[in-house]
Design a protein around this nucleic acid. Structure first.
Lengths: 244, 244
DNA sequence: AAGTGGTCTAGACCACTGA
DNA sequence: CAGTGGTCTAGACCACTTG
């Protein structure tokens, strides 16, 4: 592998370690290294790319900060896996008022396919007429239904999904069967009254105050991949947000 | 200033750059450098502390990642200031559904002092009988009241606060007059129905779904400093949470 | 031009893991 | 024990700001 060149001319300046990082992320997107697999060692990568070990280190440290890889002293650098523990820690912010966070069970209510509506088109960057897969499910903690969830996926990205068993941990499915890694999510929260439908699903009266979480999930290359609308009962739960 | 010694013996290993970081944070807590002021240059600090420039750099980079200092190429490293722009970006997550975030105006409804209740004692780590200052205020965006807020402060940390004008930006006041820098906050969100009191303040009917944000703010040294209970109307606003 | 932080390199040594 | 990532150092050069 030959050395990457600086391109100081136009775009202002892109540091070498940035180029190394982008190149390694490209490899992740392309599935060169599978989730859970070890990357080559720093020395190896440095030799391959024609840069110093320190530069590779800086790129890998940045990727570790983005939760794309996990580094373990004495063992190596590994592609981050989308197992439940990681999802729980990274993306699932609803925790019981007293007690430890736990991954909720889920039961699928319906799975259908149709034309994307205006909202889905805008969020998922789809063209008019594009199809989306919609999954509606209810999630329970300690056997009590607490989340009614509607998930919209671009059908083009997920062929044959309709014929598969829908697992509890969807992000694991995206990674495993479609090679799509969710890297970022953006969530917009509001308090609203429960609609009759959602109220029925959750076993409360319509109009009950519920937390409405509108999540958009992006892949490694910033492509929008999933829109998820969650209606949450927060009687015994809260959404935990740490800022610093 | 003499070199800091490793203390590998007991606690397992504390890297040099960590010790440098802790030492610099100690200086921030002690007010050696005021907010907005420039720290000594990397070379200067390295000479003072008897370590290499690279080690100082790593410590400062870590502090920049924690938003404690701001580094500007060609100018220097500055103690982070608690001006409105920074607060807006760092701690204020409520944004209009369409449009740019803006800092809300606020009007104080009451300011009183009393014994901390059980909840305040537990959150603020106070002993029974400790006094707290309570501020109740309403905050408006574009002249519409959208947040009813109750703030509890340990009276011991904020002498004479009752006699001061309460500014819109409280964290600026804490920093300026009391030398207390808010470094982290933890927020717990729930959807609830508005109480009669809050409903009256916000101009809605009791029971209207509102977002309840229970915030605990910590100082640089992890001391709990402020508890803030915000009741928010989210008809035209949402709470924005970016995860990665 | 001088001074700052930012990048990149090279090399030594340390801490941790697993065979 | 060899191999990995983690720390620390020293030095060269680059990009940016200010005078």
């Amino acid at each position: 592998m030959t050395r990457i060149l600086d391109q100081t001319e136009v775009l202002g300046f892109r540091p070498l370690y940035r180029q190394v990082r982008d190149r390694l992320i490209r490899n992740l997107v392309d599935g060169v290294w599978a989730p859970g697999e070890a990357l080559p060692s720093e020395m190896q990568l440095a030799a391959d790319l024609g840069v110093s070990q320190g530069t590779v280190r800086k790129a890998l440290d940045a990727m570790a900060a983005e939760n794309l890889v996990v580094r373990r002293q004495g063992r190596g650098t590994f592609v981050a896996r989308h197992d439940e523990e990681r999802i729980l820690f990274q993306f699932f912010k609803l925790v019981p008022d007293s007690g430890v966070p736990s991954f909720p069970d889920s039961r699928v209510l319906s799975l259908s396919q149709g034309r994307a509506d205006a909202n889905e088109r805008s969020l998922l960057a789809l063209t008019p007429g594009s199809k989306v897969i919609r999954i509606k499910r209810v999630r329970s903690i300690e056997d009590r239904p607490v989340i009614a969830e509607t998930i919209s996926l671009p059908a083009a990205l997920f062929p044959d999904l309709a014929g598969m068993a829908v697992p509890n941990n969807l992000y694991g499915l995206y990674a495993m069967h479609y090679g799509i890694t969710i890297a970022n999510t953006q969530e917009k929260l509001k308090a609203v009254g429960a609609s009759p439908d959602d109220a029925a699903i959750l076993g409360v009266t319509p109009g009950t105050p519920v937390l409405r979480i509108d999540r958009l999930a992006l892949a490694l290359d910033k492509t929008p991949v999933e829109r998820r609308l969650s209606i949450c009962l927060t009687q015994d739960l809260h959404y935990l947000s740490d800022l610093s």
